[in-house]
Amino acid sequence: MVSEKVRVNNPSGLHLRPAGILCKEAMKYKSLITFQYGQGSANAKSVLSVLGACVKCGDEITIFCEGEDETEALRNLVTVINNGLGE
Rank of each mutant, 00 (worst) to 15 (best):
M1T: 11
V2D: 09
V2I: 08
S3I: 00
S3G: 02
S3D: 02
S3E: 11
E4D: 11
K5A: 09
V6F: 11
R7S: 13
R7G: 05
V8A: 11
N9K: 15
N10L: 07
N10S: 07
P11K: 14
S12Y: 15
G13R: 01
G13Q: 02
L14A: 00
L14R: 04
H15V: 00
H15G: 01
L16T: 06
L16A: 13
L16E: 07
R17K: 10
R17L: 06
R17G: 00
P18F: 03
G20M: 12
G20K: 10
G20D: 05
G20H: 07
G20N: 11
I21A: 09
L22Q: 02
L22Y: 02
L22C: 05
L22M: 12
C23A: 15
K24C: 10
E25G: 10
E25Y: 12
A26R: 02
M27L: 13
M27D: 08
Y29C: 06
K30E: 13
K30P: 05
S31G: 06
S31D: 09
L32C: 05
L32Y: 13
I33W: 05
T34K: 12
T34P: 00
Q36M: 10
Q36P: 01
Y37F: 15
G38A: 12
G38N: 07
Q39M: 09
G40D: 15
S41N: 15
N43S: 05
N43G: 07
K45Q: 03
K45Y: 02
S46L: 06
V47C: 04
L48K: 11
L48N: 13
V50R: 09
G52Y: 07
G52T: 04
G52K: 10
G52N: 12
A53I: 00
A53P: 05
C54T: 14
C54V: 12
V55G: 03
K56I: 08
K56W: 14
K56Y: 14
I61D: 03
T62K: 08
T62E: 15
I63S: 02
I63Y: 06
I63C: 04
E66A: 08
G67D: 01
E68A: 13
D69Y: 14
D69K: 09
T71F: 14
A73K: 08
R75W: 10
R75E: 15
R75H: 15
L77W: 14
T79F: 06
T79R: 14
T79V: 01
V80A: 14
I81W: 04
N83W: 01
N83P: 02
L85W: 04
G86K: 11
G86Y: 07
G86F: 04
G86N: 11
G86E: 13
E87C: 10
E87D: 12
